[in-house]
């Protein structure tokens, strides 16, 4: 069985202006969402307390709210979580009111109201720790981006590295933009997903770039845009199938992994979708714009042994 039996190369680069425009639009939209709405940061980053409790019967949120108001804790948010019997309680960090004792206070109040209530999870993060997790998360993003940049620059050439990293940072911004626009909760686990996407979707660019490099050496007479078109077309089958496979795993996580993995799987889904698009239709036009030339790989009209042997091919 085969899905992609293409006789001719698809002239991707001719649509360069269109795809760049689409990318720019989504990118601007994502930045706008981030700027106006902002990320709905989870308790990991903001500090505060989140509790998950389970009742044996459908929970009466009004009663729970009323009970908690009596404890004098400020701005308690109560909502159901997954099922009607599971309740999520959030307590923001405010002055000295939130401490590790808060969850005990809440639990005691809830137990008094309904002894059958069961504590499933507590996450308490102090302000200092929250800030550190936030800083470390941001640092991790930067470190990964720079690490990949350096690796690709060594393995290929700086233009390739720059094009790939722009394409993938574009993916990350779009994932963050979606999270901001829909106000999905952004937690540590989601951040881990975003970083995994960053590492993963660079693969795409690597595969296409490998092929471009190979074609640059093989097809001496062909123009650069045609070489890129050919590289994208020949690797397209693999690109789509690979992503479909990963996406199947992620979908299975999204539907079966429960609430705890929901947003993580969501971040991966967006990342994989845009990963296909961006590594092909963003990275390559940027590469063209940066002015990639045959001479960057072939010096003195003779392929260098060292460079040629590491030219991985697909």
């Amino acid at each position: 069985m085969e899905f992609f039996k293409l006789k001719k190369d698809i002239p991707f680069m001719r649509y360069g202006k269109v795809t760049t425009a689409i990318s720019l639009l989504t990118f601007v939209f994502a930045v706008w969402a981030l700027a106006t709405e902002g990320l709905n940061l989870g308790v990991d980053f903001t500090g505060g307390t989140v509790m998950e409790v389970a009742y044996t019967q459908p929970a009466q949120l009004d009663k729970i709210r009323a009970t908690l108001e009596h404890t004098g804790l400020p701005e308690v948010s109560v909502q159901t979580f997954g099922t009607t019997r599971d309740v999520l309680i959030r307590l923001p960090l405010k002055g000295n009111t939130t401490s590790s004792k808060t969850s005990d206070t809440v639990m005691a109040a809830l137990k008094a109201q309904d002894p059958a209530v069961e504590l499933k999870r507590v996450d308490f993060v102090g302000p200092q720790v929250g800030k550190e997790l936030y800083d470390n998360g941001a640092l991790a993003l930067v470190v990964v981006a720079i690490g990949i940049l350096i690796y690709l620059a060594l393995r290929f050439e700086w233009r390739f590295a720059l094009a790939a990293i722009i394409a993938n940072v574009h993916d990350v911004v779009i994932i963050l933009g979606c999270f901001a626009f829909f106000q999905w909760e952004f937690t540590l686990t989601v951040l881990a997903g975003v970083l995994a996407v960053l590492g993963y979707s660079v693969n795409e660019s690597v595969v296409v770039f490998d092929r471009i490099r190979e074609n640059l050496r093989k097809m001496r007479k062909t123009s650069i845009p045609d070489i890129i078109d050919s590289a994208i077309t020949t690797t397209m089958s693999r690109t789509i199938i690979t992503h479909a496979m990963t996406q199947m795993m992620v979908l299975s996580m999204l539907f079966l992994g429960g609430e705890a993995l929901h947003n993580f799987a969501l971040a991966l889904t967006i990342g994989i979708m845009f990963g296909i698009y961006s590594s092909v239709l963003v990275a390559s036009p940027i590469l063209l714009m940066l002015g990639v030339k045959r001479e960057h790989f072939i010096k003195d009209n003779k392929p260098k042994e060292g460079v040629a042997s590491d030219g991985a091919q697909v």
């Binding site: 997790l133 470390n136 998360g137 640092l139 991790a140 470190v143 990964v144 690490g147 990949i148 690796y151 690709l152 393995r155 540590l188 686990t189 951040l191 881990a192 970083l195 995994a196 960053l198 590492g199 993963y200 660079v202 693969n203 690597v206 595969v207 490998d210 590491d310 030219g311 991985a312 091919q313 697909v314």
Partner: peptide
């Protein structure tokens, strides 16, 4: 295919190592 497999895995490995270094707990 081996060269490509190596290349594409190393970029993911970079992300993994950074996460291990800067992450905490479950991450």
């Amino acid at each position: 295919a081996w060269g490509t497999i190596l290349d594409s895995n190393i970029t993911t490995l970079i992300a993994g190592v950074a996460l291990f270094w800067l992450g905490s707990g479950p991450v």
